[in-house]
Write a protein that binds this DNA or RNA. Structure first.
Lengths: 277, 277
DNA sequence: CATAAACTCTATAGTAACTATAGAGTCAAC
DNA sequence: GTTGACTCTATAGTTACTATAGAGTTTATG
């Protein structure tokens, strides 16, 4: 008496008939009574308790397999431990999401920069606050070689970043750097690439701070024009009587998911810190 | 020249050969050159750019299908919009995780209460701070009927909670309530069940506050002994000359995932607010 | 009581983003 | 020329279900 058909049971518990059949198959929740002739499943109302527990454990992020194993052992003492594990798991997922959120925010900011960038080739003066980067020295001059070398160097930077457990999120904002002394020697040579990290990222080998400064900036939409545009930038610096007071940076603002033969399509912001000479 | 075998390409990009084959099959990243005779895939180093973009978009939470659709349209203008969508999605997931975290914390707290509970049948005086509950009146006396009726009433409470968009998280902490006036009439009758909600849960129909008070409490490990234990509690109240100053509450502290015939196995904390008479 | 509508059964395929395997063929080095 | 490492296709498995087909059962209505 008081047996519930599978449909009614599903309805009462806001689930589907298929789900109940699936649970029955897994041995997670077997109907109280099964008609031998028709194979019809009939549940007792008290079985809702077990279904509630399944749903609750599912909600805590456990897999059906785990839940079943749980029910099979019926070990009450280890409940707090498993709850602690779930708490840790949730904490971990939250951190991941936090990283993702940051990554998206950086991308939004960068696309905004891209959309509102001054005309290509136009030089602008801009105050840029302090930034933190994670640098990798490839010991190969980026500008002596092709886009292919650059790709290899980027792979190495990434490998380094992975080895040092930097979150994936940072990978959307890379750049290359030419040191002040190299520039002063009139050379356009760089062996270092970097990625921007959070201001609160811990200091360690490879991590350095780029101080706040006034920068002269020029935007450039192709890897192949960087040199040309940078020359223009430095010409301007000298023409206007500015003095270079730090490293030159080529920041990749966005990479556009539009490919010419699968090649990178980058939008870069070339920048050099200056003061009135 | 400079073609990468699938293994090398996988290695450079910290992914697996199968993944690359899978992407090729989906048309997401097709090798630059495929040997007609052997079917061997060969990639160009520049194709890493596309793979980077795939990984980045994946990291933002997009599906491969979406990514492909994206590449196929190559619509740069809608990038900010899609980034905003991803941001919203992440925000939503974070809220969900937050609820889960709360649920786990409540469970941890409850199991702690359970593990450290005074001896079964022992009466203790305890100060309990203000709590907020979401109440549902079934209009059926819980104590006149069986566990089965209780199950049905719980289903109704849950249905109500779902209609009112209460998060699932709250469902791990339910109880029933007997109003003060009913008790004063010497009746042990309740038609109301509830679930605890966050202190910051918005006030609405069904939500009420249980004020802070000193409570006499007794713990009980079976649905069937509630009446008996509650009697004991009230006897004690009178013996000791206390005065009941609010509603009686039967709080289900934990439900143990140990089933006798799939039945609920509850650990309850019966509590009545009092003052010195 | 007959019929129709609603329900249930089993079995199979599909979902997403891969991983794992078998069995056959290919490449690079010694 | 042989070995070992690599790659190919094709298939099955993963999770927690959903969807479907085709057959049988229960319930409501006339």
């Amino acid at each position: 008496m008081d047996k519930l058909s599978i449909g009614r049971m599903a309805e009462l518990n806001h689930t589907s008939v298929q789900t109940l059949r699936y649970y029955a198959k897994l041995g997670l929740l077997e109907p109280e009574y099964v008609d031998e002739n028709t194979g019809y499943r009939y549940y007792g109302i008290k079985q809702c308790a077990r279904l509630d527990m399944i749903n609750y454990m599912k909600y805590l992020g456990m897999s059906l397999d785990n839940i079943k194993a749980w029910f099979d052992t019926e070990n009450v003492e280890s409940i707090p431990e498993m709850l602690q594990q779930q708490a840790a798991l949730i904490e971990h997922k939250m951190k991941e999401l936090d990283q993702m959120k940051k990554a998206v925010q950086v991308s939004i900011k960068n696309y905004d920069t891209y959309m509102n960038a001054p005309e290509d080739g136009h030089i602008v003066l801009q105050h840029i606050p302090e930034r933190k980067i994670y640098c990798y020295d490839s010991e190969v001059n980026i500008y002596e070689n092709t886009l292919e070398t650059y790709e290899y160097i980027l792979r190495e930077l990434r490998a380094q970043a992975i080895v040092n457990h930097l979150p994936m999120a940072y990978f959307c904002n890379v750049g290359s750097i030419i040191r002040q002394d190299t520039i002063e020697q009139g050379q356009f040579v760089s062996t270092e690439v970097f990625l921007f990290v959070d201001p609160d990222f811990e200091m360690q080998a490879g991590v350095e701070i780029i101080p706040e400064h006034d920068y002269l900036c020029i935007y450039c939409d192709s890897f192949f024009y960087e040199r040309e545009y940078a020359d223009k930038l430095f010409d301007y610096v000298h023409e206007q009587g500015y003095e270079v007071i730090g490293d030159y940076i080529c920041e990749v603002v966005v990479e556009l998911p539009v490919f010419h033969h699968d090649e990178r399509n980058m939008f870069m912001k070339l920048q050099v810190p200056i003061k009135r000479g």
